[in-house]
Design a protein around this nucleic acid. Structure first.
Lengths: 340, 340
DNA sequence: CTGTTAGCGCTTTCAC
DNA sequence: GTGAAAGCGCTAACAG
């Protein structure tokens, strides 16, 4: 059996109270000598407080939950890394929850995490959440009085702390880059329309077009799903529209575009310039390294944890948005527009 | 405040015991009517047991810890996904721990997990562990009487359950594939020599060579580190050795080889055939899709959880090795040897 | 059939 | 300065 506080009491002759006081640094008026005896005994008996018991009485577990759709997705695994690293730095622990983008799992995980006594939740809403469903998740956390921070995906109207990227700016940067290179017909392979971040990228795209006094053409939009498949289909669709450049709303789908274009006999960037989004590690490895908008995902994870723990310590998370700045990483998949 | 069992007692007029019995399905001789009253009350009051309290008394938390080096590494993120999915299926939870391959973190996480009351640990030893250090980690888990399963990385002499891949066979398959294509001078970019799995792949390589009666040439080995950098340096080294094929001991380093060969003006597979290992998702996306030995990482994660939970339920994990079979995925990076 | 009681390991108030 | 006692929310003997 593990050593308990009682064992130390028995061993030293002091009461459980005194031991607890000393071990928690709350022993204001206990003579050094007593302290030393207790500390030494704790050490010798290799005492480690049972955190389950501590959690029960303190109603604090120093544990948070991370709800995401899928750790095996590169974006989320980088986020999770940042989250876990910061947790460790602050001596907290992390319970990982994958929802596979099912709203019902958001709900069940929130409840389970609450039952397990986590002190807070980092929440990245499931993709299949309608606005109403999303609000249900948030409502549940509020009802359970469990502090939370939303990451990456936001819900208009949610009054909470939100950590993400300035996607409008990201969309603008990608588009402006292509415009500067002389491209005028720029196709997009978007993300799911229900996602605010995809919509924001689109807004940035439109804004850049407007600045260059180019009319926005809805037919140059292929509505995708952030996966490689979308990129493949998007490439098929856009090639027929005679675009000279494509802005893929994330790298995974840019890979699809890239692969498909090649198969169609179009080369990147000679025939078509391509910009991705996320700047996944792999993008650098492609034969034609991908120009991409970088999201500092790891740092976002770190920041979200900081916000959450602050919120936990102060009672609740303040309502605010922390938007990171995107950075355009120019590589070889984009080049000047050439008249054909 | 959350509803407690006392609230239900007060609400229904029954004692706490009865409530507990009913809610836990242990109410053998309690009349249906009483049950219904209690169940309905629990439902109406939206009762959810406080698992921290349950954990304290039952000494079970239905939580396991996963100790790996880095979730942002594709291999581990896929493993983690399998682990978490199986946990969810069995109604368990997962605490994620990244060590960044530091042995000292293995040790501290093991202790923390024990303090938090996890029922078991899935352990993938830190890379910087010497044999002695590795044994220290295992010894600690044994001392703490916490069931564990080792995954991916094994320690000769550890008496425990181990889930991994038959890497010797994997190395053999990759090499044999190249031999069948007529290659005779096959270079290797290995993983860290301290890792059993890298050593096993090498053994498989030698075995295949022996079958084809080819002398093993130590100079055709570049000792790498499983990262892209190793691949880059390995390519430089091996090109000078006039090999016609390279077996990279993992995909990440195969990418390095691939990128470097291209830069050196060698094309894959025309000039040099290339085989990777792990079959990471991305390998399919490369301009020259990579032939690779597949590790069913996700399934390994699932199996490890099954073993661990079985072990927890039965008192301890049986000493056994569960080796998955590798599968060679032939793509376009390998072709027949051509006399030059 | 159901309730009383003790106790999991710890913190904390209050009293001496 | 230190200890007794209560209690966190729950389970599980043991009574009756």
């Amino acid at each position: 059996m593990r050593t308990t506080i009682k064992d130390i009491a028995r061993y030293t002759g002091f009461s459980v109270t005194t031991i607890s006081l000393v071990l928690n640094g709350k022993a204001k008026k206990i003579p050094k000598q007593t302290k030393d005896v207790i500390l030494e005994a704790a050490d010798r008996l290799n005492y480690h407080p049972n955190q389950v018991a501590v959690g029960l009485v303190k109603k604090r577990t120093n544990t948070i939950g991370l709800i995401i759709s899928d750790v095996s997705n590169v974006f989320f695994s980088n986020l999770a890394k940042g989250v876990e690293d910061e947790c460790r730095r602050q001596d907290w622990n992390l319970i990982l929850c994958n929802t596979n983008d099912k709203h019902s799992r958001d709900i069940s995980y929130i409840q389970v995490l609450a039952d397990k006594g986590v002190d807070g939740i980092l929440f990245c809403m499931a993709l299949d959440s309608s606005k109403k469903k999303g609000m249900e998740s948030i409502g549940l956390m509020e009802k359970l009085k469990i502090p939370f921070v939303m990451i990456d995906r936001f819900l208009e109207g949610a009054r909470c702390c939100f950590v993400s990227l300035n996607h409008e700016l990201g969309g603008y940067m990608a588009t402006e880059h292509l415009l500067k290179l002389g491209h005028r017909r720029i196709g997009c392979v978007t993300g799911p329309d229900v996602l605010e971040d995809s919509m924001a990228r689109l807004t940035g795209y439109k804004k850049a077009l407007a600045e260059y006094e180019i009319d926005f053409e809805p037919s140059l939009l292929y509505h995708g799903n952030y996966d490689r498949e979308s990129g493949i289909n998007g490439a098929d669709y856009l090639v027929d529209k005679d675009v000279s450049a494509i802005f893929a709303f994330n790298d995974m789908c840019a890979y699809g575009v890239y692969n498909r274009l090649k198969r169609l006999g179009k080369s990147v960037p000679e025939d078509i310039s391509l910009v991705g989004y996320d700047n996944i590690f792999f993008s650098e490895i492609l034969d034609v390294p991908l120009t991409s908008v970088e999201q500092p995902v790891y740092e976002m994870g770190v920041e979200a944890v900081k916000q959450l723990i602050d919120g936990i310590n102060s009672g609740n998370c303040a309502e605010k948005s922390i938007l990171f700045q995107p950075r355009l990483i120019v590589r070889e998949s984009t080049s000047e527009y050439k008249e054909r």
